[in-house]
Design a protein around this nucleic acid. Structure first.
Lengths: 147, 147
DNA sequence: AAAAGACTCATCCAAAAGTATGAAATTCAG
DNA sequence: CTGAATTTCATACTTTTGGATGAGTCTTTT
């Protein structure tokens, strides 16, 4: 995902910058059209930047690049839960519905359900309440994290 | 229920004891009928005793007459959960389904659901996982009580 | 005796959760 | 670069939950 989308980001940015550049010469002419172009381009750039920035932040890290990820992996993964599954479990422990979890993690409801099922299987439990309890017992999630 | 059924218990016991007593004189005669009567009476007494004992135990107490109940009521009832509701919450915390809870408490599924709904309302939560978490936080149920 | 609280149950309906299966893209390690 | 693991998503179906309402019984209290 990274390489491809970074490339995409670059291309789109370049394209939009080109538009901006092309309109640069007419910016002082007071043409309405040009102003509209600039506005649109600016908004697009902003939106795309936010979009990709968001996805990139989610992958590596914001302040502590990879340390955070690794410590997560090692400290918590006694049952073999993946990072994503731990995130889902954490939100389940807070009493969220699958839909809410999906919204929070920007994934679809079916995906959350898939994660949930895998979590139950890995944790050898049958139900959500059991998974949460066991997760607390094993120190996978923090207790008293009620919303 | 108490007065009426205690009276009933007394009456039935008396009646059966009377039968036993009446057959007392012929017990040494080796009459088969008498032995059958005695057996039936004994079984009946036992059964009725168990039945009423069961109901009475559920109402007052087994070893510590009322102290147990009251302490339960006071220590735990910070939110106003009834004893029955606490029992249901306890089983929910263990990860049981409503059906399993019903089987455990000898009540129907709809009844369990009624209790559950009342619990959620009293605890001001929306979902089972939240109720369990909050119950643990408030000390209403023991943590780490996973089945 | 009436009122209030607790416990029980039912029915209907809607939402959420869970299961199974298949599939595609990505990432990461060897 | 290939293969394993991860993550994502969909569709269809079943089970479990939850909500609303109404109602009956029993116990305790007033």
């Amino acid at each position: 995902m990274l390489k491809k989308e970074i490339l995409l980001y670059g291309l789109i940015s370049f394209a939009i910058l080109s538009i901006l550049n092309a309109s640069h010469y007419t910016i002082f002419l007071g043409t309405n059209k040009t102003e509209v172009y600039i506005s649109v381009a600016a908004v697009l750039l902003l939106g795309i930047g936010i979009y990709f920035g968001y996805k990139l932040v989610g992958k590596s890290a914001s302040s502590e690049p990879e340390e955070n990820q690794l410590s997560l992996n090692r400290k918590k993964n006694s049952i073999g839960l993946s990072n994503r599954e731990l995130e889902v479990l954490e939100l389940m422990a807070k009493g969220h519905t699958n839909q809410e979890i999906g919204d929070a993690l920007f994934i679809s409801l079916p995906t959350v359900k898939t994660h949930a099922s895998n979590i139950y299987e890995k944790m050898d439990v049958k139900r959500r309440t059991q998974a949460v309890q066991k997760g607390i017992d094993l120190g996978l999630v923090e207790p008293r994290t009620l919303v």
